[in-house]
Design a protein around this nucleic acid. Structure first.
Lengths: 125, 125
DNA sequence: TACTAAGTTCGAGTTACTCGAAGTCAACCC
DNA sequence: GGGTTGACTTCGAGTAACTCGAACTTAGTA
């Protein structure tokens, strides 16, 4: 129900530094402080962080995420706008995936070439 | 056969700045200068650049690429070592692809939820 | 001859961390 | 109570890989 920086970092496999960094940028709504000024994360905060990590992994900038949050904070009227933003992002990830797949092939080919060079006696570069 | 910075940049969809940056780091073997001190890229250089972009897209650091090149320059004796390096890299890309696919799903779900919120009358967050 | 479009170097700026220092604080041990 | 540990705090600096702009050169065209 209530988690510390370290617990959150472990849960999401990121460094405590990064967790603090995100809170300092107000990227995670609903993070409170306890009596000792320590960050306390509730389940809602964890949910947000999950989304934020997905966005970041997908290449969305911190600034765009802040824009998304600003829309969220303006209430339900911004739902269509947020939806648009997400769809654009979805498209961007799809492209990124495609790009990565292509480059994966380039590397696969290179590995195959080296494999041949090593396991047969003669061949090309 | 011989290409300028701009031509190379267009061919690979990267900025001329980045092309120069890579040559300055000696990331691309075989880039010469013409009488006006301008960078000249041959077909071999283009081949290298293709590989380098694949490595970079796949998340390999510039430093690792430099290590790979250093091995290359030491000759055929380093082929097994280069092969090992490539296989490790291949593994890393595979993981990255998997990770990206996962985060794509997170975003897909969010998009679907928003879609529901907009197209049906009532629902959850 | 002037303009344009490319090139050059160099140094500064940007993004998203990443690290380390210096200090606070609760919990445990003896 | 004193000492150590471990996790927390802020803050400022460092890093990677671009990214940009300034100031300048040079070749080609009008």
């Amino acid at each position: 129900m209530a988690y510390s920086v370290k617990e959150v970092a472990e849960k999401f496999q990121i460094s405590p530094h990064t967790v603090r960094y995100y809170t300092d940028l107000d990227l995670i709504p609903g993070v409170e402080r306890d009596l000792n000024n320590r960050r306390v994360f509730g389940d809602a905060a964890l949910g947000w962080l999950k989304t934020i990590i997905a966005f970041r992994t997908a290449g969305m900038s911190v600034e765009s995420i802040q824009n998304y949050l600003a829309l969220y904070e303006k209430g339900d009227a911004t739902i269509p706008e947020r939806y648009e933003l997400l769809v654009v992002q979805q498209q961007a990830v799809a492209e990124k995936l495609e790009e990565l797949r292509k480059q994966m092939n380039v590397i696969n080919e290179k590995v195959a070439t080296y494999y041949d060079r090593i396991h047969r006696s003669s061949s090309r570069s």
